[in-house]
Design a protein around this nucleic acid. Structure first.
Lengths: 188, 188
DNA sequence: GGCTCGATGTCAGTTACTGTCATCGACCGT
DNA sequence: ACGGTCGATGACAGTAACTGACATCGAGCC
């Protein structure tokens, strides 16, 4: 693999996921990732801000999808419903790559620093959702609460989706979790 | 300040908060913190796992308070109500140190790494709440959802408490946020 | 065929963090 | 009072993440 092979960024992502899975995140050096991708350490840091970010490259695109889905939802929909629908759109994308998602999640779950990064990515989704709701006329604190509650629903649905062997549909699990949240907050 | 002055840990915490506030988190080195506390860099890392953790020493005690409050709540209380009450107990403690909380929060808000650490601390609160609920007979996913929803409520109430100059009572703001969440999830 | 420009390589430097061993000083028993 | 023990600290070397500065390559363009 020479200096000018295509898709350097993609090669780095693949190499990182493979090495993190084989020997663990902490036991992998950035130099090793770069070497497997046929590049140097310095080039790794030109593509990714730090050693963790290489696992979260797709997060921005999913956030954009969520925001545009929410932005195009009917005005008549209640905020929490619109948020859930937007998150289901992201869920549908993940559904198409379940094996990859599981491999990636097992790496993340094994390391606290990676879990931190995942949390801040989800927090940025919540902030984007809240912004979009506010642009649609939802006032605070309802906008933030709907966004945060939606992310909580997504988080729990995602966890079930990853751990269950039954292969339930992630969008369906999101729907079910929202219904559960409604039951929990309604007082039983 | 000699080698055996008392409360080395507390001195490190004070020095770190002061320096992070004066010149920013990234512009402060651990060696500088240790020097201000009359200690060495190596000793800093014996008291705190990393450069961020020095700001989160109190998190564990608050988590314990939340858990014990939840564990001693009446069985008749609905899970989300018991969770909110437990978080109000933490809120009452913070209320007593509003100025310190504001200073600390302004440092955290200014740096992404510190925000990550804060998110994982809140996630550990959620996990502890969920565990405690399950021990009291609440089944999944209701336990996780009540815990995560409670943390979302706390997060938003805390943010308002920090930013509002009116000095509203944090426990009250938590109560109000919970009511708002109920309204949001009930469909308006 | 030379030029330009973005992507990569090279190299030196800083700093967070760790392992190891030496040292200090409070406490304890005699 | 004296020596021994032990936890807390210091000293020092080392690894690896991350950055800045400058050189180099190769694709496209005129």
């Amino acid at each position: 693999m020479g200096r000018w092979e295509p898709d350097a960024r993609g090669r780095l992502e693949q190499a990182a996921l493979a090495l993190y899975g084989e020997r663990g995140y902490e036991q992998t050096t950035v130099a090793e990732i770069a070497a497997r991708a046929g590049l140097t350490e310095r080039t790794f840091f030109r593509h990714f801000a730090d050693k963790r970010e290489v696992l979260f490259a797709g997060s921005g695109a999913l956030r954009d999808l969520i925001v545009s889905t929410l932005a195009s939802s009917p005005d008549s929909a209640a905020p929490i419903e619109a948020v859930a629908t937007a998150l289901q759109a992201a869920g549908a994308v993940l559904q198409e790559r379940r094996e990859y998602a599981q491999q990636r999640q097992s790496v993340i779950a094994a390391n606290a620093e990676l879990r931190e990064r995942e949390l801040i990515k989800l927090a940025s989704w919540a902030a984007a959702l809240s912004d979009t709701l506010r642009r649609r006329g939802v006032t605070e604190p309802a906008a933030s609460l709907a966004a945060e509650a939606g992310i909580a629903v997504f988080r729990i649905a995602f966890e079930r989706w990853i751990n269950e062997s039954t292969g339930n549909d992630l969008p369906h699990l999101i729907r079910d979790s929202l219904d559960e949240l409604k039951a929990v907050t309604a007082g039983k």
